[in-house]
Amino acid sequence: MAPVTMIEAIREALDEEMQRDPAVVLIGEDIGVYGGAFKATEGLLAKYGWERVIDTPISETAIIGAAVGMSYQGLRPVAEMQFMDFIACCFNQMVNFVAKSHYRWGGPVPMVVRGPCGGGVHGGPFHSQNPEMWFVHTPGLKVVCPSTAYDAKGLLKSAIRDNNPVLCLEHKFLYRRVKEELPAEDYTVPIGKLAVRRTGRDLTIATYGAMTLHTLEAAEELAMEGIEAEVLDLRTLAPLDREGILESVRRTHKLLVVHEDVKTGGVAGEIAATVNEQAFEELDGPVLRVTSLDAPVPFSPPLEEHFLPQVADVTRAARELARY
């Protein structure tokens, strides 16, 4: 098996799920003939036809609305947001229609919304955002953020098979930067379970998405200084694997959270509160955060670099925490 990129892994997941289950249909902008802005759906129209790969007008609200409607018919639609930033256009459908349907009246919504998020590619304020917390804050939705090709495929398959609405936030920085060999056989990655990417005794660093790469790089630097960091890749933000985080903190007694989302209202705050409530006695130091600035994502490279967390920010915070 040749190694595949994350975008190829996503395409494989869609292809295999469509092959496995005719209830799986794709809907979105430019996903058919063009194959999607990032080519996630390339070749799928030719293979599965117009009924299963539906190009829509530029209407995010209608895309999500139609996907909900199809899911009520027992289908499993996968809606693409060309860029996750545009999910703001259909925010009402997401938080009021999709998220509350099962709770309010027992109408399950087995649909997936997937698409590229995140910065580091100079996309500017409207093609770089990390909108995860808008939805993590909304009960009824599940939110996954893979950092590897393996997880991107396995989580997307789990999302398609889930009876609940799942948002797959695919970091576009990773689409073609991470590559690995994938198993030939069908596999899934469970939603709601973190992965320990590196074991270490001195502190825990919890992160997800593209920041997993930065954090692992930082951990290698720290190791050379004699600081052994345990790196947790959260993979799912809703439902959050609180037990997995607590388990690690009970061993290392220190926690740093790294994310590309902005600081205020980011998941780091939620994790810090959880650890405070449930493992305060275990802590040997404060829970620290390394995040983006509380600002829109700026366009020009030096501005964006300053805005985003860098490897050096992670090592600096980790060293500070290690001193406790």
């Binding site: 249909v25 009924e51 539906i54 209407s59 609200t61 209608a62 895309i63 999500i64 609305g65 139609a66 996907a67 909900v68 409607g69 199809m70 899911s71 009520y72 018919q73 027992g74 289908l75 639609p77 009402n92 459908q93 009021n96 229609f97 509350k100 349907s101 309010r104 009246w105 109408g107």
Partner: peptide, 25 residues
């Protein structure tokens, strides 16, 4: 029967989707 939400207009794409889904089946 699909339940409405209080925000007006959102049922229109949803019922379009129900129609598309039914036709698909």
């Amino acid at each position: 029967v699909v339940s409405p939400i209080s925000m007006l207009g959102d049922l229109i794409p949803v019922m379009t989707g129900v129609a598309m889904g039914g036709r698909y089946l």
